[in-house]
């Protein structure tokens, strides 16, 4: 209990902002999915820190569910990337403008 929860919040905010910046500036689809993983981990750090400081196990259980959703997201996202690469021979985001107007 020697570390104040503010430090965990700052760390989580830094990692989350890094993920947001990664989603915004990268053009590689795989790098964007990795940035989404960064954001999920930032929220998980927040959940576990609050679970420790509020002495409630619900935060850790929510991290468990977030892990489940992250695994599902990765499986479906990578399958979509494989299908995209099969149709366009590219994983660069700027090559996919079918839905752009």
């Amino acid at each position: 209990m020697t570390i104040p929860i503010t430090y965990y919040l700052i760390l989580s905010a830094v990692v989350f902002l890094t993920g947001v910046v990664g989603v915004l500036i990268r053009r590689n689809i795989i790098a964007i999915l990795l940035s989404v993983e960064l954001m999920l981990n930032a929220t998980n750090i927040n959940f576990v820190a609050f679970s420790r400081y509020l002495e409630d196990l619900g935060g850790q259980v929510f991290v468990f569910f977030a892990l489940t959703v992250a695994a599902a997201e990765v499986a479906v996202g990578l399958a979509i990337i494989i299908a995209l690469h099969r149709s366009k021979e590219s994983i660069n985001l700027e090559d996919f403008k079918l839905l752009k107007w």
Partner: peptide, 12 residues
């Protein structure tokens, strides 16, 4: 997880 598994198989 079941839906994600089926979706990944169908998509890939």
């Amino acid at each position: 997880l079941l839906v994600a598994m089926i979706g990944a198989i169908v998509l890939a």
